[in-house]
Amino acid sequence: MKIIVCIKQVPNSADVKIDPKTNTLIREGVESVINPFDTYAIEEAVRLKERFAGTITIITMGPPQAEAALREALSLGCDEAILISDRAFAGSDTWATSYTLSSAIKKIGSYDLILCGKQASDGDTAQVGPGVATHLDIPQVTYVKKIEEINGEKARVERLVEDGYEIVEVSLPCLFTVVKEINVPRLPSLKGKIKAKAAKVAVWNAASLECDPKRLGLEGSPTKVMKIFNPPPRKGAVKITGEPEEAVDKLIELLGKDLPR
């Protein structure tokens, strides 16, 4: 089985703060990690490889330092890594990003399955995975929580929805975005880390992809971010203090006021 996993390097969300003046993310000094949702995609790929043999190619679009995320994925059991990096990609929205990733996947050639995390923890759009599938014109299943069956031709998966899950059958090649319920990602091993350190990471620039330069980066991005801000704090909470018995009476009184009679 030939699997491609798309990942993104993001700021560690435990450390993220927003600059109150500019309303933008403060990225300086924040550790970069693999998007947490993508770690489930990597783990699922490694499990499939352990079951069916095959290869895992890990790709990311990002600045040169995103290579660290690829090496981490290699240490977890992925076989090849490709960094898609060029100034021309800067400022890409989800449309341009998914176009660029799909161009890289076309260059890779054949594959059975593409796995992505359900969304990135920084942008939270959940659009890139579906975008890639659309550009490649292959079927997609989003929010996959379990791969029930899979063979070279088709797969049967459980897909998380708000009030339960759906069982979907899909033909391969296809793309899944996965949710955290799908597995528990393993920790890297020392031997994996040592191997990943020495592994070669290919770097592909815009010129190496067969793509329309007008559809890349800022120019190829129809989305314009007008403003980013913290939602205003909610108002109107009442704190009831005092002895428990008094507090309960007070609570009942307050609840009674809002009840229709």
Binding site: L187, P188, S189, L190
Partner: peptide, 20 residues
């Protein structure tokens, strides 16, 4: 089991015997 999977049990053992 986790420590075993991470190869930490082999840090002081020669590579030819499966260590680090």
């Amino acid at each position: 089991k986790l420590l075993a999977d991470s190869d930490l049990f082999g840090v002081y053992i020669e590579e030819k015997y499966g260590g680090i």
